[in-house]
Amino acid sequence: MTEYKLVVVGAGGVGKSALTIQLIQNHFVDEYDPTIEDSYRKQVVIDGETCLLDILDTAGQEEYSAMRDQYMRTGEGFLCVFAINNTKSFEDIHHYREQIKRVKDSEDVPMVLVGNKCDLPSRTVDTKQAQDLARSYGIPFIETSAKTRQGVDDAFYTLVREIRKHKEKMSKDGKKKKKKSKTKCVIM
């Protein structure tokens, strides 16, 4: 069974824990209790493949930012979460993405942009803004509501699919490099 290491990042209060708990335990946590770091595991079937999701729910508070490099190193894919009623959390996505790329030393890291709290009427981040940002990053965008469960499975499952595509691409690139290195030079 394939294991996928997913990391949920975003500013404090955007609903990272609520999304994760909704996926794992099928219930909505409405009281806000700032996370330092929590880890969850769940076995699911995605596109006919049974897999184990190892999900790291991270601290959004700035005082825990020193811990970010460590979990970013171990993560295979990242859910970059903002709240649709919090423009600052949307603007912060850029910083999370840049930090992930720096730590992973790669421009090509599996990510999904997630606009959470889409059940709320007080939207300050337009869907088109988020779609445009995701398009500019070359990553999928999904709106979710941890409260109603809308888009929750889709967000995590899409990230797994992005990781699969990335692994497939990397193995193809690896095979191309191996083929090239088999060419021999004969000096007579």
Results as ranks from 00 to 15, higher is better:
45 V>N: 11
12 G>H: 08
54 D>M: 01
32 Y>L: 04
36 I>M: 11
37 E>M: 02
29 V>A: 11
47 D>L: 04
32 Y>K: 03
6 L>E: 00
2 T>C: 13
4 Y>F: 14
39 S>E: 08
49 E>F: 07
60 G>P: 05
35 T>E: 00
57 D>G: 02
24 I>C: 13
9 V>C: 11
25 Q>I: 03
64 Y>T: 15
12 G>Y: 08
32 Y>R: 01
55 I>E: 01
55 I>L: 07
3 E>Q: 08
7 V>M: 08
10 G>D: 00
42 K>S: 10
29 V>L: 13
11 A>E: 14
52 L>S: 11
50 T>L: 05
55 I>A: 10
11 A>L: 14
62 E>Q: 10
23 L>Y: 14
4 Y>T: 14
43 Q>L: 04
17 S>Q: 00
60 G>K: 03
24 I>T: 14
22 Q>G: 09
56 L>H: 06
37 E>W: 01
33 D>I: 12
57 D>T: 03
41 R>Q: 09
48 G>E: 12
64 Y>D: 14
50 T>R: 06
37 E>L: 00
40 Y>A: 07
24 I>M: 09
45 V>R: 13
13 G>S: 11
34 P>C: 06
40 Y>N: 02
43 Q>R: 09
54 D>F: 01
19 L>R: 00
17 S>A: 00
8 V>E: 02
61 Q>N: 07
55 I>W: 02
28 F>R: 02
52 L>G: 10
30 D>A: 10
60 G>N: 10
36 I>W: 02
44 V>H: 06
44 V>M: 05
21 I>S: 14
23 L>D: 07
4 Y>I: 12
2 T>Q: 15
62 E>S: 10
64 Y>G: 15
41 R>W: 05
12 G>I: 04
45 V>Y: 05
18 A>C: 08
21 I>T: 15
20 T>R: 03
63 E>D: 14
41 R>Y: 06
12 G>A: 06
25 Q>W: 05
47 D>Y: 06
23 L>W: 14
62 E>A: 08
21 I>Q: 13
14 V>W: 02
43 Q>Y: 07
7 V>G: 09
59 A>S: 14
36 I>Y: 03
21 I>G: 12
38 D>H: 04
52 L>R: 12
15 G>T: 00
59 A>D: 03
31 E>S: 06
49 E>V: 10
32 Y>F: 04
47 D>A: 08
11 A>V: 10
43 Q>D: 04
3 E>T: 09
27 H>D: 08
6 L>A: 05
8 V>W: 03
30 D>M: 12
20 T>K: 06
29 V>N: 12
52 L>P: 05
8 V>T: 07
58 T>M: 10
22 Q>F: 04
7 V>P: 02
60 G>M: 08
40 Y>V: 06
42 K>W: 03
9 V>T: 04
64 Y>Q: 12
55 I>C: 13
37 E>G: 02
12 G>M: 06
20 T>H: 03
30 D>Y: 09
9 V>G: 05
28 F>L: 03
15 G>W: 00
48 G>T: 11
3 E>D: 12
3 E>G: 11
39 S>I: 11
51 C>T: 09
20 T>G: 15
33 D>M: 15
16 K>C: 05
18 A>N: 06
60 G>S: 06
6 L>F: 13
50 T>C: 14
18 A>M: 05
30 D>E: 12
60 G>F: 04
51 C>Y: 13
24 I>Q: 15
58 T>Y: 14
45 V>S: 08
10 G>A: 09
12 G>N: 09
31 E>P: 04
53 L>I: 15
46 I>H: 07
51 C>L: 06
5 K>G: 11
63 E>K: 03
22 Q>L: 03
46 I>Y: 09
57 D>I: 01
34 P>F: 14
60 G>R: 05
35 T>S: 03
5 K>I: 03
45 V>L: 09
31 E>H: 05
27 H>T: 11
